[in-house]
Design a binder for these strands. Structure first.
Lengths: 118, 118
DNA sequence: CTAACATATGAACATATATTCATATGTTTA
DNA sequence: TAAACATATGAATATATGTTCATATGTTAG
């Protein structure tokens, strides 16, 4: 039984490796970070979140705003809902969506600072 | 020739729509936002960035740290390089990568605030 | 110059994901 | 209750993406 070698380099810097290894966030946080960014990595979802930043909206309004089918919007709202980024309430035939996270704006703003300096 | 109807609802709220429409960031910013988050949406890339937050590292070190093949790391470093999130310098046979963005930490921190409140 | 080492890269493959289409569910009005 | 409306959802499709494998490029030691 062979040990699988992922890195066969001989030049590994043990000191650096140990220092960095000790400062790495836990696996769980790293996973959640990537998952969070994955939710925000789609243009349609970013637009929806930005829209909701200004006003609650029903699915119909969002469809009209983004000029996309109701189905496409509905699917994306489900993703945002599962990620707990938005919540919803029913009002008659309509379903209104709103933000369920106070940090979205800060996250967007930080990313925009990055973008606007490049 | 028919006009394609993306939303055939009759219940569109014109006032809300106009208000939101005026407050939407430009298409370009929205696109760049999603693109930025897409770069950060992969676990391997998040780990690499967190590692580089503590120390410059050669490809070999990163491979060893994450227990992944040199090739996989190299491919991801290329993505990060193209996104201008990391830069590199050659030192003999090794290539050292380092962060090329001061905002990564703030972006991660903001996202972690979100994560840790859910 | 040649061998050994460190990194980069193209192609292939498997997997994930966004949208469409058809249709189901839920609500109100007539 | 039936019809119209608003939204949700499963299946299918097309596309994007991460890793592996093989190999190329670049650097240094002998």
């Amino acid at each position: 039984m062979d040990i699988i070698e992922k890195c066969d380099c001989t030049a590994v810097h043990e000191d650096i490796l140990n220092k960095v290894k000790n400062n790495m966030p836990c696996e769980n946080n790293l996973y959640n970070l990537a998952e969070t960014f994955k939710i925000l990595s789609d243009g349609t979802r970013v637009k929806i979140l930005y829209a909701l930043l200004n006003s609650d909206m029903c699915v119909c309004d969002i469809s009209a705003l983004l000029d996309m089918t109701q189905s496409a919007i509905s699917h994306q709202l489900r993703v945002l809902k599962q990620a707990r980024l938005v919540k919803y309430r029913r009002e008659g035939k309509s379903v209104y969506y709103s933000l369920d996270d106070e940090h979205i704006k800060s996250i967007f703003d930080q990313a925009l600072v990055h973008i606007n300096e490049k």
